[in-house]
Simulated scan of single mutants.
Amino acid sequence: MKKSQSIIILLLVFIYANVGFAQTYFPPKNTWESRTPESMGVNATTLSEAVAYAEANEYSGSKDSRVASLIGFRSEPFHEILGPMRERGGPAGVILKGGYIIAQWGDVDRVDMTHSVTKSYLSTTAGLAIDKGLIRNVMDKAGDYVWDGTFDGEHNSKVTWHTLLNQSSAWSGELFGLQDWADRPPRSGGLDDWRFKKPVEPGTVMEYNDVRVNVLAYSLLHVWRKPLPQVLKEHIMDPIGASTTWRWYGYDNSWVNVDGVKMQSVTGGGHSGGGVFISAMDHARFGLLFLNDGNWNGKQLISKEWVEKVQVSSEANQSYGYLWWLNKGRRKWKDVEDESIYYAAGFGGNFIVVDKKNDLVIVTRWLEPNKIGEMVKRVRAAM
């Protein structure tokens, strides 16, 4: 090889490593560096239009979360508020590229309910349990770990961690006074039709059901033998530099005895109250961790294998993984063809979107839920 060719190759390597493909920025605690869109190769005008779209399409439900929940879930028999709730703020969000803030709007430090985005945090505590060997295999039966009767009987004994995590467990019973059949009942048929319907075989049908998700949280509490908010704080939120303002609640009656200590079993959503209360900026740190395959500034906080597993379509629903939504199947966003995108989603238009191909994290709060696809399309158009 000629000397001139060698010099050219070395220059290309240097440019590749130091200019066009710089390492991801990981913000220290209590600070976060912003970059102009132009400096990150992003069209500032188009990005501003995407932000304006999010601001102009605020969730139409009441700002009183109790009212919004009671109206939104009015079809559920016996629905009531059992845990903490709070009035929400206005539209807010942040967009990261390469870890840097390239856009933000609204009060990004305000702590708000995040409803079913909580499920993706719950999934993370399950992944940590797998990583640490507390659960040997997601295909194990949950009843092999939780033997207090929760998984007794011919039907519930078939439930695995895998089916709990992809919401196809069809677990049948009552937890903390809530019946599984009363959560999100079908639109047709009477009360008795819902109540006495025979459960489907575990693993065959995905049903969005908070009671069954709460069974997962309850089961993970028994595996960890300490409160899940503490698990999340120690292993994830503190290492990524999250604030001290986030909280994770259960119901007023979801206290259980573990090793003689009273602990609260947290909820995986908020439509009866509880769940994760958090700021947009803490959401963004969590999203950045997943964008980087569970690695934070050189430290693997949760295995890359787990981050990959949450993105695998379940047998019962192509659009759903392990408590994360996938841009596939019937939930695929119009004109957003990238099926590698995955996201956490919650009632009222709360989203954490992970776009690996564009090195993006998009956090948007209180966006009209059916506008998220268009919002993401507009952000990607600015790349």
Rank of each mutant, 00 (worst) to 15 (best):
residue 77 P to A: 14
residue 321 G to I: 01
residue 240 I to P: 01
residue 172 S to E: 10
residue 123 S to R: 03
residue 75 S to P: 12
residue 50 A to D: 07
residue 231 V to R: 14
residue 216 L to R: 01
residue 167 Q to A: 11
residue 234 E to V: 06
residue 210 D to H: 01
residue 100 Y to F: 15
residue 243 S to A: 08
residue 326 L to G: 02
residue 216 L to E: 00
residue 93 G to A: 06
residue 179 Q to W: 11
residue 162 H to E: 14
residue 360 L to E: 03
residue 268 G to I: 09
residue 38 E to D: 15
residue 223 V to M: 08
residue 368 E to V: 02
residue 208 Y to G: 08
residue 82 L to Q: 15
residue 382 A to G: 09
residue 322 Y to T: 05
residue 234 E to M: 10
residue 315 E to Y: 03
residue 214 N to T: 00
residue 57 N to T: 09
residue 136 R to E: 15
residue 74 R to M: 11
residue 109 D to F: 14
residue 224 W to A: 01
residue 280 A to H: 02
residue 348 G to V: 00
residue 143 G to S: 08
residue 252 D to A: 15
residue 259 D to S: 14
residue 249 Y to P: 00
residue 25 Y to E: 09
residue 299 K to Y: 06
residue 165 L to V: 11
residue 355 D to P: 07
residue 298 G to W: 05
residue 96 L to M: 06
residue 353 V to L: 10
residue 127 G to V: 06
residue 19 V to P: 04
residue 113 M to E: 14
residue 108 V to R: 05
residue 121 Y to I: 11
residue 232 L to Y: 10
residue 297 N to H: 05
residue 305 E to G: 04
residue 168 S to I: 09
residue 68 A to W: 05
residue 18 N to V: 10
residue 95 I to G: 01
residue 301 L to Y: 10
residue 102 I to W: 00
residue 90 G to D: 12
residue 73 F to P: 03
residue 328 K to P: 01
residue 284 A to M: 11
residue 21 F to A: 11
residue 128 L to G: 01
residue 346 G to S: 11
residue 331 R to I: 08
residue 271 H to V: 12
residue 254 S to R: 13
residue 269 G to K: 01
residue 144 D to P: 03
residue 287 G to C: 00
residue 20 G to V: 14
residue 228 L to W: 03
residue 36 T to I: 06
residue 209 N to W: 07
residue 250 G to S: 07
residue 69 S to F: 07
residue 288 L to V: 00
residue 127 G to E: 10
residue 192 D to L: 13
residue 263 M to W: 08
residue 364 T to C: 14
residue 194 W to L: 05
residue 282 D to I: 05
residue 289 L to S: 10
residue 95 I to D: 02
residue 221 L to M: 11
residue 313 S to W: 03
residue 10 L to Y: 11
residue 147 W to I: 10
residue 162 H to T: 00
residue 239 P to K: 01
residue 51 V to S: 02
residue 93 G to W: 05
residue 353 V to N: 01
residue 337 E to F: 02
residue 350 N to Y: 15
residue 372 I to E: 04
residue 23 Q to G: 09
residue 235 H to Q: 13
residue 22 A to V: 13
residue 316 A to K: 04
residue 76 E to Q: 14
residue 58 E to T: 07
residue 321 G to W: 01
residue 10 L to T: 11
residue 110 R to E: 12
residue 335 D to C: 04
residue 138 V to N: 06
residue 13 V to N: 05
residue 308 E to F: 05
residue 135 I to L: 14
residue 220 L to R: 01
residue 24 T to S: 12
residue 66 R to K: 14
residue 237 M to F: 15
residue 89 G to H: 02
residue 326 L to Q: 10
residue 229 P to L: 10
residue 16 Y to L: 13
residue 134 L to P: 03
residue 19 V to Q: 05
residue 175 L to F: 08
residue 236 I to W: 07
residue 150 T to Y: 06
residue 38 E to L: 11
residue 303 S to K: 04
residue 279 S to Y: 06
residue 232 L to V: 02
residue 313 S to G: 15
residue 146 V to F: 08
residue 30 N to W: 05
residue 284 A to L: 08
residue 354 V to E: 03
residue 69 S to I: 10
residue 194 W to Q: 05
residue 104 Q to Y: 05
residue 179 Q to V: 09
residue 345 A to H: 02
residue 291 L to W: 02
residue 109 D to G: 13
residue 23 Q to R: 12
residue 61 G to S: 14
residue 62 S to C: 07
residue 202 P to H: 12
residue 275 G to Q: 03
residue 345 A to E: 13
residue 354 V to N: 02
residue 48 S to Q: 15
residue 131 D to V: 12
residue 364 T to L: 01
residue 132 K to N: 13
residue 277 F to I: 00
